[in-house]
Amino acid sequence: MDTAIKRRAFIKQTAALGALGMVGGGLAERLFAEPAAGAPIDIAAVTGADSYVATTRAVELLGGMKRFVTKGARVVLLPNIGFRNPGSFVKADIIMAAVRMCNEAGASEICCLLRGPSGFWKRYQEDKALSADFDTIRFSGDRYVTVQIPKAKILKTAQVAREVMEYDVFINMPIMKNHDGTLYTGTMKNMMGACPGEPTNRFIHTSGDGEPGYDEMPHMFQCIADLNLVRKPTLCITDCTEFLLTNGPFGPGKLGKADTVVAGTDPVAQDSYCLRFLDLKWNDVGVLANAAAHGIGQTDLQKLTIKELSLEKI
């Protein structure tokens, strides 16, 4: 290891440990006890009581945020924070861990497409030690561009948040949870959060005819797969800490708890992996088969390098 690399690694670890000193407490020393593996990791699943620390560690296992965010890059975050019932939204700690890492990597702008329910950011707004990163977020999500999707089977045109199409880095941040219609929602379906209610999401939900029926579900499966053709995320970070097992996506419902954050770059693989928390497999759900058919990603987890880590066991 040359001196320059040593210095960069030292600065990175020092900065990260500083963040953990604020949020993660005693886990900070343990976080870097295990160096990132030499072989490329496709999916990193980190389990720990502190989701901020787990998020940081998961991205580090993929090679660190600098693998995805270069100095001066503009970053757009798409967190699933539209609901407020327990197990229905991504924890603020997970989003803020990503923001911290983006800032450390030198992002010039961080745009978040959703604002979350009232009080969602309270801790990060009021605590002076934490608010510096929060203040770097620009909230948007109300400017859309019309995108043609030539390879789509149904959704040939969609309106998508401008930043998703234009920014250098797109980080998709879903929560893995039950969905009464599609059986699960994760990275793939979270793309609908980048679209307006009218006309795109209404078309996806109602197939345009306004009549309820089973024919709408295959329609939705295909539309979600089609929508994911517009842009593949640079990075996916999935909240699998506490999640709805029933009555999703809105809740309230039965809650599952895994205290796990999963990071990866392939949205299909990401969801295929995370389905285990709902006791499902990729071929139980229609969306992933259609996405795989589009060539968006990999459903066969045997072909991937997956690193699972428990922070409590370090």
Binding site: G82, F83, H179, D180, G181, T182, T185, K189, M192, G197, N201, R202, H205, T206, P212, E216, M217, M220, N247, G248, P249, F250
Partner: peptide
């Protein structure tokens, strides 16, 4: 669906 998203179906 504007209120509860996919739960509406």
């Amino acid at each position: 669906f504007r209120m509860i998203d996919g739960g509406a179906e």
